[in-house]
């Protein structure tokens, strides 16, 4: 489903050129569970941003279901993000003034879905993630684990094919982290393609496919 060819990206930091991605080639099949590890500055976050269509490469191609996304315009890329890609961030990135329900609802709202349908979809997802009773609380009233589950609910409410998680347990204690990982793995079990970027070796080791990035290249790619 995902087909990355010769993807390259260079950042200019001061006088230096930082090669974040150097001719990366990667194929990801539907339903895969993949972890991306590597030291800081190895390019793993950049790879995640590329796969999430948040960033544009300098060179190379990135196809989703055969469609090259690199030459697409900003609006078209936003459209793919909305329909096919879900994001889970380390810092949750919930909108503080909106309730948990409204945060989960946001992608549907942005997509112009009618309010009645929105409510149904949001209720289902929140019930599944065990946060329905906290639906009318604002993020400040929720625990870290609850916040991350709200963020996951928001990421999957559009039923995307790809779920990109950037250090999803980074801000959580081990118990909440474990819960969140279990939710993500459960979603993967239902067929969503899950990609987790992490520093946490034990979390990384749980994935069926493990990639190690080094200096902008895929250094290790192991399965099983």
């Amino acid at each position: 489903m995902i087909e990355v060819r010769d993807l390259a990206k260079t950042f200019h930091v001061g006088d230096e050129d930082v090669h974040a991605l150097v001719d990366v080639n990667l194929d990801i099949a539907p339903g895969e569970y993949m972890s991306v590890m590597g030291p800081s500055g190895s390019g793993k976050s950049t790879l995640l941003n590329m796969l999430g269509l948040l960033d544009r490469p300098d060179r190379g191609t990135y196809r989703i279901d055969g469609i090259d996304t690199v030459p697409l315009g900003e609006e078209a890329r936003a459209d793919i993000r909305r329909r096919r890609i879900g994001f889970v961030f380390q810092a949750y990135h919930l909108v503080p003034r909106l309730t948990a329900r409204e945060n989960v609802e946001l992608p549907l709202t942005l997509g112009g879905v009618a309010p009645a349908q929105r409510r149904q979809a949001v209720d289902d997802i929140m019930r599944r993630l065990d946060i329905l009773e906290r639906a009318d609380h604002v993020p400040a009233q929720l625990s870290g684990g609850q916040r991350q589950r709200v963020a996951i609910a928001r990421a999957i409410v559009m039923r995307p094919e790809i779920l990109l998680a950037d250090e999803p347990t980074g801000n959580l204690d081990s118990k909440s982290g474990e819960e969140v990982v279990r939710v993500l793995e459960q979603l993967n079990g239902e067929g969503i393609t899950l990609l987790v970027v992490t520093h946490d070796a034990s979390l990384g080791a749980r994935a069926r496919r493990r990639i190690r990035m080094l200096d902008g290249r895929v250094a290790v790619d192991e399965r099983g």
Partner: peptide
Amino acid sequence: LLKALGAGG
């Protein structure tokens, strides 16, 4: 965030 959730410019 809005952009990541699929809001265009």
